[in-house]
Amino acid sequence: MTGSTGSTGSGWQVDDLDLASARALVRRAVDKAEQLGLSGGIVVVGASGALLTGSRMDDGGAGGMGRARSKAWIAATQRIPSTAHLHRLGVIAPAVAEGFSRISPEADFPGAGGMPIRVDGRVVAGIAASGSTVSPFFPPGIDRELMIADGQPANPEDLLIAYALEQEYAGQHGDDLARWHATFGEWPAEPPRGVGMATAPAASRQSDLDWCIALADAVIAAAEAAGLPVAVSVVDRRGEPIQHDQMDGAPTGGAYVAEAVAAASALFHAPSGDLAERVEGAGHLLPVAVSALSGGLPVRRDGVVVAGLGVGGPAPFRCHDLAVAALAAFTERG
């Protein structure tokens, strides 16, 4: 991506991609993933290392958002494809590689597939995907021409990222030809151009994700009306992220707080601000980070808790009020 996409900040040190542009990239990736029969998480991390946005597709599976976030963080902050970073880790001294992970906890999964995002030649973010079926391996029954991009063999994960960025396809996961040959047989002597990079129809089978995006949008609308830039997270009942957005100008710490208070509310079925005793007593036992700061609420459908909503950034009581108002308006709309 070049030229037309904006970024936020003053230009001091680094600028991050703006939320609207980051969201558009993720949605393009979702469209292509659905066309390819894939399901997982797609994440954009700013050049500063701040999480900007992420979406987990329906049936995306636990863990995918975390893996994608790690690869996107590497691509954004190291300014190189995560596969190049992975190669470097393999040739330097093991102690150095281990040290990188220790002091870069958001790079715990240094897998291939994360790509830097450039505007006017400058890296402003990184994007990556991972999940239950997002991988370089072909899903069963896929049309072989979908796995050909501009006359070259392609793999699903790298294809959806190249498509999102509107860039020429480049494989990041090793020998695409060998993988194609093992699945489809001999590579054609006169290969077709393929339809891997052809325009994907808008995703239409993401009802849970679309519901969570609408809830996040309700918070963003309430925050804009109040003049308070925030981060908002919607997590499933286990505390795994489904949708995350950080508004332009929001405090960077809000992203971490929003996730943690959303997870606390989802796991314990109560507002996060009411959970100090339980978080203190059981927080170390849980699979995700939780917080008893205000700003998190359980989200119910038909009386059953199905998600957690978290808002972070301004003072906790303001985040709580925003979450309450947005969730009430969203529920009233149905």
Rank of each mutant, 00 (worst) to 15 (best):
residue 125 A to C: 03
residue 128 A to L: 04
residue 248 D to N: 13
residue 50 A to M: 11
residue 116 P to G: 00
residue 137 F to E: 14
residue 116 P to C: 00
residue 145 E to R: 14
residue 264 A to I: 05
residue 221 A to R: 06
residue 260 A to E: 01
residue 216 A to I: 01
residue 254 G to P: 04
residue 9 G to E: 05
residue 274 D to V: 05
residue 300 R to V: 04
residue 312 G to M: 10
residue 296 G to H: 12
residue 98 E to F: 05
residue 136 P to A: 10
residue 161 I to Q: 14
residue 102 R to A: 15
residue 213 I to D: 06
residue 212 C to W: 01
residue 184 F to V: 14
residue 136 P to F: 11
residue 41 G to H: 07
residue 151 G to H: 09
residue 127 I to Q: 03
residue 141 G to E: 05
residue 212 C to E: 02
residue 20 A to H: 01
residue 50 A to D: 14
residue 253 G to C: 00
residue 326 A to V: 02
residue 250 A to L: 03
residue 144 R to I: 04
residue 272 S to H: 14
residue 133 T to K: 07
residue 60 G to R: 02
residue 282 A to L: 15
residue 3 G to E: 15
residue 42 I to K: 04
residue 216 A to K: 02
residue 207 S to C: 01
residue 57 M to R: 05
residue 280 E to P: 00
residue 88 R to S: 06
residue 234 V to D: 01
residue 276 A to K: 08
residue 288 V to E: 03
residue 166 E to Y: 10
residue 100 F to L: 14
residue 93 A to R: 11
residue 313 G to T: 12
residue 333 R to E: 15
residue 87 H to V: 13
residue 194 G to C: 04
residue 254 G to T: 06
residue 312 G to H: 08
residue 63 G to L: 03
residue 142 I to A: 12
residue 77 T to K: 01
residue 128 A to S: 06
residue 173 H to W: 10
residue 38 L to Q: 10
residue 140 P to E: 13
residue 39 S to M: 01
residue 115 M to R: 15
residue 331 T to P: 02
residue 189 A to F: 03
residue 74 I to Q: 05
residue 20 A to F: 00
residue 15 D to K: 11
residue 37 G to I: 02
residue 192 P to G: 12
residue 59 D to K: 07
residue 334 G to T: 07
residue 333 R to V: 11
residue 321 D to A: 15
residue 268 F to V: 13
residue 306 V to T: 14
residue 171 G to M: 10
residue 128 A to C: 02
residue 208 D to W: 02
residue 154 A to K: 03
residue 262 A to F: 01
residue 16 D to L: 03
residue 137 F to T: 09
residue 79 R to K: 15
residue 191 P to A: 08
residue 129 A to R: 02
residue 30 V to F: 13
residue 241 P to Q: 09
residue 33 A to V: 08
residue 235 V to A: 00
residue 94 P to R: 01
residue 125 A to I: 02
residue 214 A to I: 11
residue 313 G to K: 14
residue 165 L to K: 05
residue 308 G to Q: 08
residue 273 G to Q: 12
residue 315 A to E: 15
residue 114 G to A: 02
residue 293 L to H: 13
residue 93 A to S: 08
residue 41 G to Q: 07
residue 244 H to L: 11
residue 305 V to W: 09
residue 116 P to N: 01
residue 244 H to M: 11
residue 64 G to W: 11
residue 299 V to S: 15
residue 43 V to D: 09
residue 15 D to M: 10
residue 197 M to V: 13
residue 297 L to T: 08
residue 108 D to W: 06
residue 231 A to M: 03
residue 306 V to K: 12
residue 12 W to D: 04
residue 247 M to Q: 14
